[in-house]
Design a protein around this nucleic acid. Sequence first.
DNA 1: TAAGTTTGTATATTGACCAAACTAAGTTTA
DNA 2: TAAACTTAGTTTGGTCAATATACAAACTTA
Lengths: 386, 386
Amino acid sequence: MQTITWNQQVVKRNNKSLVLQTIIEKEPVSRADIAQITGLNKATVSSLVNDILEENLIFESGPGESSGGRRPVLLHFNKTAGYAIGIDIGVNYVLSMLTDLKGNILIEKNQPIKNVAFDAVTDVVSEMIRSLILEMPKSSYGAVGIGIGVPGIVDKQGTVLFAPNLNWSNISLKQHIEEEFKLPVLIENEANAGAYGEKQLGAGQSFQDIIYVSAGIGIGAGIILNGELYQGKNGYSGELGHVIIQANGKKCSCGSQGCWEVYASENALLEMAPQQDATLESLVALAEQNDPEAIALFEKIGVSIGIGVNNIINAFNPEQVIIGNRLVVAKQWLEGPILETIQTHTLPFHQKEVQLQFSQLSVYSAALGVSAFVVENFIRDGITVL
Amino acid sequence: MQTITWNQQVVKRNNKSLVLQTIIEKEPVSRADIAQITGLNKATVSSLVNDILEENLIFESGPGESSGGRRPVLLHFNKTAGYAIGIDIGVNYVLSMLTDLKGNILIEKNQPIKNVAFDAVTDVVSEMIRSLILEMPKSSYGAVGIGIGVPGIVDKQGTVLFAPNLNWSNISLKQHIEEEFKLPVLIENEANAGAYGEKQLGAGQSFQDIIYVSAGIGIGAGIILNGELYQGKNGYSGELGHVIIQANGKKCSCGSQGCWEVYASENALLEMAPQQDATLESLVALAEQNDPEAIALFEKIGVSIGIGVNNIINAFNPEQVIIGNRLVVAKQWLEGPILETIQTHTLPFHQKEVQLQFSQLSVYSAALGVSAFVVENFIRDGITVL
DNA sequence: TAAGTTTGTATATTGACCAAACTAAGTTTA
DNA sequence: TAAACTTAGTTTGGTCAATATACAAACTTA
């Protein structure tokens, strides 16, 4: 039995976290506002705010507007008290960025890669991290951590168990990067990272139960339930791409048959295209010129995506389904068929009120997601330590 | 923002709950043991135990064995401090039971019903509750609540939105029963109730992430994540029976096509049977006499169940999948095909370590589940009130 | 200018857990 | 068989965080 005992330190830690979270979400805000919002006593808020001020995570600014009495001292989140590094390892690129503690991008680097071997990729990653740290502005806490999104199955220890498109298996990526930079490192599946990014900074900010569908070369999903990323027993939930939507259907690279991603991914699209050298971009270009064949192709993929989304809605009863990753560029032709498929298939009660949206952060979802994760850990641990 | 502030009362409530939970799980147990297990100070435990003693939820028994010093006073959970009523409304029966606070069945009543109209069913339910309360032994708290499992979609307010097999829609069942008996009432979907029953009292006791598949006339599922029932935004998650496993497949009563339950439920079985008047029981009887046709039929259903279970494992990465409800009687012929389907389809990493089991509580899963739910609420609220 | 309002701080109190001393009731050992 | 040791549980006094209350500071309004 994993038991947690409760004592005054826990109380203080949680209240402090609550106060800081309130400042982050509502800044600029006065002590009096915080007391009103949280229900904590004015004196308690005052004391906690002073603690956080000493930690440099917030700062005071000149007095705000009076509402008939003494003017309030406004509190702001010190979003440049430190910086987070977010990295998205794709199949043919590495995207890295430096963000402040609110997820604003300060520096962004994107490097195409051809050699996906582990050593080659980590060389690129390491070099990028080094240069980001060099270019980073001075701050109280410096780099607070490194987050990395990977297109594959990652366990809770940060080991990449299997990344078919990179040809990786059983790679202790977290340990490797941690040893080099002596900073907290966090590895996440690309879809989970994207889900978290959209939840914190993109389309999902006002929802608690979200399924993020990463529709790229394959299909993955990030599952956010009750506002938190659900990871499954071992951390590898969300392989929705390998849900069977056609029993005894087409062979899938995973060894199974009829998997969703065989019908609804970028790979599926390219395989169905009549042109030998079709790419997602070339098909989009054709569709933009009203090429009926290309449009029909996208619509077919849209229906297949819709089938899978139907399954998601019936299974999870989420508030929101977000479609992300590469296929978002074809939103224009996909959205209609997806919606129509849902309308004709999904249970009416489940359909009602569910939001279907496309990614708001486009190619940045995953990198911003891991970066936001890093920030969250930093803030939680910072507060814990005291 | 729904904020929770932390103070000493919260600390005490949680620690008290922790102590009581420890006693329930480990009884008989001494104060010293509890201090050791929970990490709380001996003095704190003593004080909390005395509080709980006053509430009559536990009692002391004669001293236990010495381990080289003073003999401990053993503490026991007072499982007869009150009783819970659990009811399972089926399509052609109402099963009701009185349980003690540990989920032991004291009285059990089962009544077949023909008329599924709301009024007729609630008359039966009310009559059963009345007689259970009359037969209930004397106790400190009496009947602590009523739980009802229903084969349909239930929202978080206890309204039965839609129960196709009962022909019910939009029925405020909770309100109705609450008004009659002035007791806390709780309504749950039958699959959710079954999942909770197996988790607390049956096959799932040592697991945290469990999917319970209720394979009966239709298919439903209860989803337990991180040890808690996941209900979705509106409380109607788990309609896994309407996940599409065959795009453009057979028509389903829900209006969609190719739903899992069209291929893997009791209804699917009976539809495929050559006999006009086949029932699940008659087919089991045939299979027991080694009738090859009947056995082949079950095996076919088994493969279809396996497809859906594959989808569950890939999507949720659970620790355990439990198959429950009526089809469990055919376990002997279903288990092989299900396992084989998983082995040939499910992602290897996800397959590893996942447990496939059949219900341990047989027909009692749902009724025991709601009853356990009632007990949990009683204990939590009792402790809250002080 | 005086009265009323709002913000934020200071002080004393409350109540929870905890450490340590203590009482109670055994076992072990010489 | 008595002294030494062990273990269980209670009592006492202390600490810490939140709170209620009073109050000072700063502003608005009539």
